[in-house]
């Protein structure tokens, strides 16, 4: 589904991501953990086609984001760590805008918007301007906008920040549902308990370099993810 090959991204002389390679298969929830400034967001933005990179390649279903950015972007949805959405739109207009871009039919979008807005208890807020939303509501809207075009791959940067416990629980279920239907999820998180319980595989990044990756058992064995993470960070 997603193949990252020797990804290197530099800011001047500083290597934010250094020769990172990962392979994410359909049906997998892949967690991406690392300290602040480790290079998680840079990696996710590179996958999303927001940042260009210096070396390596990123392929989604065999298509390179470098050479086929539009075809790649049709396959995934991206949710950033801080959902800066269009404050001048209402929630509903924003969802329709995203649905238009992904060419979601009128009937299908209506059903999906209703379904996810109801699930996240956002139905009554969709008519309000996004500028009046709280951080959590914006996050929910960003999640709904990601789900309404039925992407094969969902890339999320700290998706649980700002969500209430119920919404977090719903999101976890939705993530599992995507994977059960043959999709894949790649997300970063600082909440190790979530990663431990939710992910099929995880990758740990430190100072731009991938220091460990694989299935949960391969990475942590019998120890807790927290202990492994702290050991690796030292």
């Amino acid at each position: 589904m997603l193949t990252i090959e020797h990804l290197t991204k530099k800011y001047g002389d500083f290597k934010a991501v250094d020769d990172l390679s990962l392979h994410i298969l359909p049906g997998e929830i892949y967690g991406f953990i690392g300290h602040n400034g480790a290079g998680k967001t840079t990696t996710l933005k590179s996958i999303a086609g927001i940042l260009s990179f210096d070396e390596g390649d990123i392929k989604i279903n065999g298509l390179s984001i470098k050479t086929n950015p539009i075809e790649c972007k049709k396959l995934f949805a991206y949710i950033p760590d801080n959902p800066d959405l269009y404050d001048f739109m209402t929630g509903e207009k924003y969802l329709n805008f995203i649905a238009d871009i992904f060419e979601v039919s009128a009937a299908s979008r209506s059903a999906l918007i209703k379904k996810y807005a109801d699930i996240f208890e956002m139905t009554n807020s969709l008519g309000n301007p996004i500028s009046s939303y709280s951080h959590g509501m914006k996050q929910k809207l960003a999640i709904i906008s990601a789900w309404i075009h039925d992407p094969k791959l969902i890339i999320m940067d700290e998706p649980f920040v700002g969500l209430d416990p119920k919404a977090s629980h719903i999101l976890k279920e939705m993530m599992r549902e995507v994977c059960n239907n043959g999709g894949a999820i790649f997300f970063s998180t600082h909440v190790l308990e979530v990663a431990e319980k939710l992910c099929d595989k995880i990758a740990i990044i430190k100072s731009g370099k991938l220091i460990r990756s694989g299935s949960m058992d391969e990475v942590k064995g019998d120890d807790s993810l927290e202990n492994i993470f702290l050991e690796l960070e030292e």
Partner: peptide, 16 residues
């Protein structure tokens, strides 16, 4: 300010 129930319409990318 409840959402008005209006029929959703699909627009082309350019129009959107």
């Amino acid at each position: 300010a409840l959402r008005k129930k209006s029929a959703a319409r699909q627009n082309s990318i350019s129009k959107a």
